[in-house]
Write a protein that binds this DNA or RNA. Structure first.
Length: 569
DNA sequence: GCATCAATTTCCAATTGGTA
DNA sequence: TACCAATTGGAAATTGATGC
């Protein structure tokens, strides 16, 4: 919900910046229209309200279109839009233009993480089909439009109770409906989503399908979003899906669909359009072409302000582009305030409070890290869709003499990994008085859930939870280095505070990639074998080990910094 | 994609303050 | 005293950052 900037019960919030007495800065003050009305009736212009550089940059065409004149000069193909193109076009005209005119753009090739999301979606889609007995799949090549439409008609005429990938064309737009279900009074259109709830963008998705299906002469009497149901608990998968009727909401959107389709087709007939960058670059989905439209944000740009989120767009639009030029009265998150000070000083800030915070870390220490798998369709007892289940851990544990020993375990088959993992982890942490994890709520949550599923594991889990401490606030609440670029994630912090200990040298360098590889190793069809499997397991071990070693070195660095900060400045 | 936690914002009702 | 606007404070909802 977007803030209107006006509170209930009065209009005076509209004139806040010009009140005669000082008022505390509120975030929304930065976002109101650049021109306000003072209580005395005079117009005021807020500072920095001239055309923002943000807008000027947005016009920064890179001439990419020129390279594709050849594509554009081809004779017009009649069928230009599809369901996914339509929704892309709703997000941004440039995104749609590039998708159509430059389909082989490297930005459009899914990276490992996006591919994993798509794969998960395909598995969910296949499971959804099993919920429609007797359904017929239109199993033809993706781009065989005419044959698919013909096959769909044949299936409808042949009395199929449900048709998967039911294909239709109208208004130069092709859609393939996930499931079209025969009903007494017509047909029910079902859109399958691997999300756990209906989202607003799903409604547009359904709307364009209803428009095209009805435009093909097929009566659509209801429409549903069929999404994954988090309440479902393995082994009972009978309620894996929830089905939500959405036709009333969709009917409200439908009148606008033909105009949007026409506008998109007209836009595609022209040159690359100009669109200002903004929030739509990130919502509802991060645009793969950000690299073409966005400048390289300087270290002091408000885009890099910690905890700023989408407000950065409004700040920039109102002329506030530099963090150190934000008004002094603007209250920031304490870490963002420290970031602003560090940028103004041009150096790292270490608060004297760091030493106090480090006193909590009573040795011997252990540092732990998990890698998890979160299948949309649960596979182990007591699990719900997307529950993260630990399948690998790394632990650096301090011996009595202060030396570090590394412990590690990685699942190797489809058995539930939790009992074995927790037994080994409890062993590894036996001598530790403090157990550190970076962003410990994640590890703690995963452990607590395992104890719920396996009551026998309660005691070892509780013993770990009693000693666990989060390393993340040690950095966020006490240290800022301009090299952090507004992030306190381990991947942002470690290369700055522990130079030389990054992730660049590792074949697997990121948690989501690790998760995807573990899933492939355990459930792949076929799973990797032989040398490939050994290499994969080695890469996973090295990644997880780097995370815990990183926290070990990080704590050492923090102790050195704290000792320096405690002395005379 | 999802979950969690903490921070922030919004909402709503109660209270306070000013004016007629 | 009645009324309205402004302020306050707590609850609920949303957002942002982090993890996978």
């Amino acid at each position: 919900m977007k803030s209107t900037g006006v509170r209930r019960g009065g209009t005076s919030a509209e004139v806040g910046c010009a009140l005669s007495r000082p008022v505390p800065w509120r975030w929304k003050d930065a976002f109101r229209r650049p021109v306000g009305i003072r209580r005395d009736g005079r117009r005021v212009v807020r500072p920095g309200s001239a055309t923002g550089e943000c807008d000027r940059r947005a016009h920064g065409d890179r001439g990419a279109a020129d390279a594709y004149d050849g594509v554009r000069s081809h004779p017009e193909r009649r069928m230009r839009l599809s369901k996914s193109r339509f929704t892309a076009g709703l997000q941004c005209a440039r995104l749609l233009w590039w998708r159509v005119h430059e389909p082989d753009a490297p930005e459009l090739a899914p990276d490992e993480t996006r591919q994993a999301v798509f794969d998960q979606g395909h598995r969910v889609g296949a499971a959804a089909r099993a919920r429609f007995p007797g359904g017929v799949l239109i199993d033809l090549p993706h781009d065989a439009f005419e044959q698919r439409v013909t096959a769909t008609r044949a299936a409808m005429d042949g009395g199929a109770p449900a048709i998967f990938e039911a294909s239709f064309v109208a208004d130069d737009t092709f859609v393939a409906v996930d499931a079209l279900e025969r009903r007494p009074g017509g047909w029910r259109l079902v859109e399958v989503k691997s999300s756990t709830r209906v989202k607003t963008q799903h409604l547009q998705d359904v709307a364009v399908q209803v428009h095209v299906v009805r435009g093909s002469g097929v009566p659509v009497e209801s429409a549903e979003v069929m999404h994954v149901n988090r309440a479902c608990t393995y082994p009972d998968l009978s309620d894996l899906f929830a089905r939500v009727p959405v036709l009333p909401e969709v009917e409200r959107i439908l009148p606008g669909v033909p105009g949007r389709l026409r506008a998109q087709l007209a836009m595609l007939g022209g040159d690359l359009p100009t669109v200002a960058i903004g929030l739509h670059c990130e919502e509802p989905y991060p645009c793969p072409f950000q690299g073409r439209c966005w400048p390289e944000w300087p270290a002091d740009h408000v885009r890099r302000l910690y905890f700023v989120g989408k407000r950065s767009w409004e700040l920039a639009a109102n002329g506030y582009t530099s963090i150190d030029r934000l008004p002094d009265g603007m209250t920031l998150h304490p870490a963002a305030e420290r970031q602003r000070r560090a940028l103004r000083l041009g150096r790292r800030i270490v608060e004297p409070t760091l030493a106090v915070a480090l006193e909590r870390l009573v040795g011997p220490l252990a540092v732990i890290d998990f890698e998890t798998v979160s299948p949309a369709i649960p596979v182990w007892d007591g699990c719900h869709p997307y529950d993260p289940v630990p399948a690998q851990f790394s632990c650096h544990a301090q011996e009595a003499d202060g030396a570090w020993t590394h412990h590690h375990w990685l699942a190797n088959d489809t058995a539930d990994p939790r009992p074995e993992l927790i037994r080994r982890l409890a062993d590894a942490c036996r001598g530790a008085r403090t157990i550190l994890a970076y962003y410990a709520p994640f590890e703690a949550g995963v452990l607590a859930q395992a104890a719920l599923a396996f009551p026998k594991l309660h005691d070892p889990v509780q013993s770990i939870l009693d000693r666990i401490v989060d390393a993340h606030p040690l950095v966020r609440d006490h240290v800022y280095d301009p090299g952090f670029n507004g992030s306190f994630s381990l991947k942002a912090v470690l290369p700055v505070l522990v130079p030389g200990l990054g992730y660049d040298d590792l074949p697997i360098a990121e948690g989501q990639a690790a998760s995807r590889h573990i899933e492939r190793m355990l459930f792949g069809d076929p799973p990797p074998h032989g040398a490939e499997r050994r290499a994969l397991r080695d890469a996973l071990r090295r990644y997880c080990e780097r995370d815990t070693l990183g926290v070990v070195r990080l704590v050492e660095t923090l102790r050195t910094l704290a000792a320096g900060a405690a002395g005379p400045v």
